[in-house]
């Protein structure tokens, strides 16, 4: 390989010269508008509706959809339950500590965020082993965890995430969808059993239908053994 002294400098200067005479990219915004691809979103921001409530429903769709897991959030979910959530463990610690709601500039009370209780994971580990650490059996794992601990503690969800390799967002998304799974200990056990036996929306529907039809009973959800 031949070596010509100064060739590197010459190349560099050539690039500098070319760039110098190239048309400039800076535009006089807002007089001029840039040609932006239609799907460009710029900085992501959570919006408020006309009542001043955040439009984000904490449905975790975006967190689940984001291929690099850069979205994480916490706050109230669609069922009105407080919960906090982190991204996958490899996301930056600084981001882990802030929920999307917090970053939106609004202070949000989030008791579960500041402290969550430690957990004796013995029972959980047995459950995970019974289910082969298989994320495809997540619903069964969550049900068994709830049966063992009475509810789904944050620490348990974190552990499940670590051990099965499923994203916390995905696990939380699953747990928050099903009405029979809960994140806090039930106020009273009887009530929890009633919710599990007949979902509140179904009960409201049957009652509403019965009333609309002139007070006749509109039927029953499936009943089990007496």
């Amino acid at each position: 390989m031949s070596f010509i002294p100064g060739i590197g400098i010459a190349r560099g200067m050539a690039l500098t010269l070319r760039r110098f005479f190239e048309p400039k990219a800076t535009i006089r915004y807002p007089e001029q508008k840039a040609d932006v691809p239609p799907k460009f979103r710029g900085r992501l921001q959570l919006l408020y509706d006309e009542y001043g409530t955040l439009k984000c429903e904490t449905c975790f769709q975006c967190a689940q959809a984001c291929p690099i897991e850069c979205i994480d959030m916490g706050g109230l979910d669609t069922k009105g339950r407080f919960h906090v959530h982190w991204g996958a463990s490899e996301t930056y610690g600084e981001r882990r500590e802030e929920s999307a709601l917090r970053r939106s500039g609004r202070p949000v009370p989030d008791p579960a965020y500041t402290h969550f209780e430690g957990l004796d994971v013995g029972a959980l580990d047995r459950i995970l082993e019974d289910h082969d650490y298989d994320p495809a059996r997540m619903l069964q794992i969550l049900e068994a965890t709830q049966a063992a601990y009475g509810h789904l503690p944050v620490a348990a969800l974190k552990r499940i995430s670590q051990v099965t390799g499923a994203w916390y967002a995905t696990i939380y998304g699953t747990a928050s969808y099903y009405a029979h799974l809960r994140f806090e200990p039930p106020a009273d056990a009887g009530q929890a059993a009633a919710i599990a036996a007949r979902r509140p929306t179904e009960a409201a529907y049957l009652a509403g239908l019965g009333a609309s039809l002139g007070g006749r009973s509109a039927g029953d959800a499936p009943r089990g053994d007496a």
Binding site: E57, Y177, T201, A204, Y205, G208, L209, A211, L213
Partner: peptide, 15 residues
């Protein structure tokens, strides 16, 4: 009647 039905459908919509 329509209100009760629609309400249930909205409550159950997955979002």
């Amino acid at each position: 009647l329509a209100r009760v039905l629609t309400r249930f459908c909205a409550d159950e919509a997955c979002g």
